[in-house]
């Protein structure tokens, strides 16, 4: 069941990507696209389960824009943060690697969380290990896993939990 759902989902996404890339409905383009689609589906058999695990409720779709806005806002803040550190002559950094606990269970959820953390102010995900993320923090404020979770990943986890779990 999850496999079939994965195939359908991949087909829809890949078709959309192809149409956006070629930008035309000419017969030649569609035929070539069909071949590429078939090839991609065969090559990525291993990941059907992963895609099938995604949940698509109306609530998730409604919350997705909210997550994107939060994400872009954090990305802009992170750039201003890095820029101000780089431009200050004293180069104010206080780096270290901290261990952060996460409440997310699904692989996709952890992937999105890890990516979001990498693109937010002063943090870079180094590794994911079960329930823990290892994060390089440019300005370490608190090194215990729980406190770091509050400071780094809490703001994403609430929304992500609603969307992917």
């Amino acid at each position: 069941m999850r496999q079939i759902k994965g195939i359908i989902l991949l087909t829809i996404v890949l078709t959309a990507v192809w149409l956006l890339l070629t930008g035309s409905f000419a017969a030649e383009e569609l035929i070539v696209g069909g071949f590429v689609l078939a090839l991609s589906l065969i090559l990525f058999r291993r990941y059907y389960e992963l895609f099938g695990g995604l949940r698509f409720s109306l609530k998730a779709l409604a919350l997705l824009p909210a997550y994107l806005i939060l994400f872009v806002w954090e990305l802009i803040k992170s750039n201003i943060d890095v820029a101000s550190r780089v431009l200050r002559p004293s180069l104010p950094i206080n780096p270290g690697i901290v261990k952060v606990k996460t409440d997310l269970k699904s692989d996709v959820g952890k992937l999105v969380l890890a990516n979001s953390i990498t693109l937010t102010p002063g943090t870079l995900t180094i590794d994911v290990d079960d329930d823990f993320l290892y994060i390089h923090w440019i300005d370490v404020k608190d090194s215990s896993p729980e406190a770091a979770q509050t400071r780094i990943s809490r703001r994403f986890e609430g929304l992500l939990k609603e969307i992917v779990e």
């Binding site: 992170s78 550190r85 180069l91 950094i93 690697i97 943090t123 870079l124 390089h136």
Partner: peptide, 17 residues
């Protein structure tokens, strides 16, 4: 930036945005 990890921090965020 002084080491590889801090350089990555600056590099990733700035190039992405």
């Amino acid at each position: 930036m002084p080491d590889i990890y801090n350089r990555l921090q600056a590099g990733t965020k700035a190039t992405t945005l």
